[in-house]
């Protein structure tokens, strides 16, 4: 449903020297500096798939989404969404997509959400029956029926986001772009939005691209992710494989029984890896994968272990490490 080949976007930004003289000089001469926001990226997204787009601020996630939604033009490359070139902005294309930007309100603030939805019904030419059915379903699942006639600006952030979701999905889009849909929401609202997205995916099978800084969003919603840094993709594959590919260590946690004797010397533990924690109740070690069995055996043999857990490093930390390593390589 979404096919992207060698898509690039370069912005030209003005640079101005600081201070009054810099401002005066900029009245006559302005220096334009190119910034490669997206660098020759390629990807495919299938029907019913939720692709997670992960990257630090300024990595190019939003730029890519904006190109695929037809908002901005690329500098080079090709993209096809439902067989259309997005930036040609055919009405047929725009009737089948939705863009939800968590940082930018799409609804009209001074109007009740119900009025906004009626306008959208007209814009997307949604038949009366379909509109009533979809509004009933979406407002029930998202639990905002009682707020439909409240002015949008008087709603809480969580309620507003739910209204934004309804507005974007009323016309049953086949492709949905979700740019930070849970940003700023409390944990309950985040969970409600995630559950809803999964349910909507089950029901309508749209292709979705999700960008988020919350790893919980990504872990809960996406099986496949693309990691983007400085405009280039550095990973495109299954979320689980990120751990296998990049997580070189595991964390061993030994919960201890009450004891009279002392713990082994710290340097004994350090033979296996980094000691994260060492108390009378618990010992935590970060150990390289090949040495996990050996380290576990040592702990079981030499400590009064009540319980032992071996965990993968969490995905967020792994991705953070990948960014950090690449940054250091670049420097």
């Amino acid at each position: 449903m979404i096919r992207v080949r060698s898509l690039s976007k370069t912005y030209y930004v003005h640079k101005k020297a600081p201070g009054l003289m810099g401002s005066v000089r900029s009245l006559f001469v302005r220096k334009k500096t190119p910034k490669d926001a997206v660098k020759a990226v390629s990807l495919d997204v299938a029907e019913g798939e939720i692709l997670g787009l992960v990257g630090p601020n300024g990595a190019g996630k939003t730029t890519l989404v904006k190109m695929l939604a037809g908002i901005i033009f690329p500098t080079s490359g090709e993209a096809s969404v439902l067989g259309h070139t997005p930036w040609e902005r055919d009405n047929e294309f725009r009737r089948q997509i939705a863009l939800i930007m968590g940082q930018k309100a799409q609804l009209w603030w001074d109007l009740p959400a119900a009025d906004c939805f009626l306008l959208l019904k007209e814009i997307y030419r949604i038949p009366d029956e379909k509109y009533a059915e979809n509004l009933e379903y979406l407002s029930t699942v998202l639990d905002v029926k009682k707020d439909l006639n409240v002015q949008v600006r008087r709603l809480s952030l969580g309620e507003r986001m739910k209204m934004e979701l309804i507005a974007a999905l009323l016309h049953e889009p086949r492709v949905v772009f979700l740019d930070e849909p849970t940003i700023g929401l409390d944990l309950t609202a985040q969970r409600a939005i995630r559950d809803f997205i999964l349910e909507y995916r089950e029901r309508h099978k749209p292709a979705m691209i999700l960008t988020s800084h919350y790893m919980e969003d990504i872990e809960r919603l996406c099986k496949r992710i693309v990691i983007i840094q400085d405009g280039a993709f550095i990973y495109d594959g299954q979320l689980d494989d990120v751990v296998k590919t990049y997580a070189k260590r595991k964390v061993i946690t030994a919960h201890l029984r009450k004891q009279d004797g002392s713990l082994p010397e710290r340097r004994e533990l350090e033979r296996f890896g980094e000691v994260l924690e060492e108390t009378d109740l618990q010992v935590r070690l970060s150990v390289e994968r090949p040495r996990v069995a050996e380290a576990s055996g040592y702990l079981l043999e030499n400590l009064p272990v009540a319980d032992l857990a071996i965990d993968e490093t969490d995905v967020g930390t792994i991705i953070e490490q990948i960014f950090q390593e690449r940054r250091e390589q670049a420097e």
Partner: peptide, 12 residues
């Protein structure tokens, strides 16, 4: 301010 984004997505 980027408010144009939402209008560009509308099929109109």
């Amino acid at each position: 301010e980027g408010g144009l984004n939402r209008y560009l997505v509308f099929p109109t």
